[in-house]
Computed example of a mutant assay.
Amino acid sequence: MSEAIVTLKKGEGRMLKSGGLWIFDNEIASILGSFEDGDIVAVHDFDGYGLGKGFINRNSKIRVRMMTRNRHQEIDEAFLKMRVQEAWDYRKKVSDTGSCRVIFGEADFLPGLVVDKFSDVLVVQSLALGIDRLKDQIVELLKEVLAADGIKIRGVYERSDAKVRRQEGMELYKGFIGEAFDTNVEIEENGVRYMVDVKDGQKTGFFLDQKYNRKAIQHLCKDAKVLDCFTHTGSFALNAGYGGAKEVTGVDASELAVEQAILNSKLNGMEDRVKFICRDVFELLPELEEKGEKFDVVILDPPAFTKSRNSVKNAVKGYREINLRAMKLVRDGGFLATCSCSHFMTYELFTQTIHQAARNVHKRLRQVEYRTQAPDHPILWAAEESYYLKFYVFQVVDEK
């Protein structure tokens, strides 16, 4: 059966033509031929010129997600194997592959699909209808590609429980792909060991995108008193401990995360120096300030305060609040590591917000470095959503 043809309006498809993978509903002039949501369709410009192929979904404002710019390319097993092989070859060049993100959606030209590798376990997240149909086939191909490098995968778990699936008309889902297995997985990163709960941990169980940012704070923390806010399962706190910190306090509002962090601290034999408390960071920081507490290093790794353009204003208030509170807790000449993981909080806006916070509390910031997500989460320049993590390290100096 021949593919349906999606034709763009004249002057539309600017994101697509600059290298992006999305076509929005309001860019389309017509759709000819029969199709079901999730099917592969051909995409033509207004004048009939072939722009490639992608999968369609009328439930989503992102009406078509492109799989290839080659209008003659069949989306078959050989094509999917090529995409998976290219993704893995890239990781081998740029990252420690013991645990890494193997497939990062649009940035690996497999839109809507995320696959994380934790040691010998894969965790899959499918966020778009068309890729959901291909998911099982891609997982099998990935296992083949890894096996060719001597890596045997003992289990695959699906974490397609992100609310964004509802925008695609899909139900939320989590469960095993294939045989059941123990979903607590031990990994090592930057010399630190963690137990990762791929079944019930946040997102896919562990945030791999901060791998090299965590490593970057190790040398700053030698002999330091450290506060790690929004610690999740303790990753920055434990890197501080590994770097030789004399005292580390990790804070998170989730009891489950704190329990996991305590377990991870014991796993590394750091429980005497790296401790965790379950508290709301926004409530705790003013209390610490009131007590006159000071830290050599303060780390802020909050969840995304905004997941849409509509809530950016409130997010700015949140980021400004925690940053100014944190700056007050850093001793003169100490360090602040601060980040945002929302792509709606742009680099410019995040930078401006931190600058305002510093002005408000009469602190001067000396930038040590600016970083972004680890290279196994590549940034595709034409796909804005692939650039989301902004990470600064500053020395905080009192005005005097």
Rank of each mutant, 00 (worst) to 15 (best):
N239E: 00
E27G: 11
D228Q: 04
G333C: 11
N184E: 06
K81N: 07
L288G: 10
S119F: 15
G292N: 03
K294F: 07
E348R: 15
G98K: 15
F35V: 09
P303I: 14
L8N: 03
P375I: 00
G175N: 08
G244Q: 02
I62Q: 12
P302W: 02
C100G: 03
V396E: 01
V396D: 02
G112E: 01
Y173G: 04
R279V: 00
N268R: 14
C221F: 10
E77P: 09
R193S: 11
G54V: 05
I299F: 12
D136A: 15
I277E: 05
R14G: 03
D149Y: 11
I322S: 01
L365K: 13
F295Q: 02
K211M: 04
F394K: 06
S99C: 14
V64P: 04
T231K: 08
E106S: 07
L285A: 06
S95V: 12
R214F: 01
D223Y: 09
E186H: 11
G169P: 07
F24T: 01
V361A: 03
C339E: 00
S265M: 08
I56N: 06
E27K: 07
R58W: 05
E321R: 13
I75M: 05
G52C: 04
P303V: 08
F335M: 01
I40S: 06
P378A: 06
T372Q: 10
F391R: 03
N360R: 15
D120A: 12
C339M: 13
I217D: 04
K225L: 11
I277P: 02
F236T: 04
M15G: 13
G48K: 02
Y319K: 03
M195P: 00
H219A: 02
D200R: 11
H377Y: 05
V196A: 01
E140D: 13
A337Q: 06
T231A: 06
E74I: 12
E77C: 10
L220S: 07
T97G: 04
D132L: 10
K246F: 00
T97L: 09
D272G: 14
E186L: 08
E168K: 13
N310I: 10
A257C: 10
M67P: 09
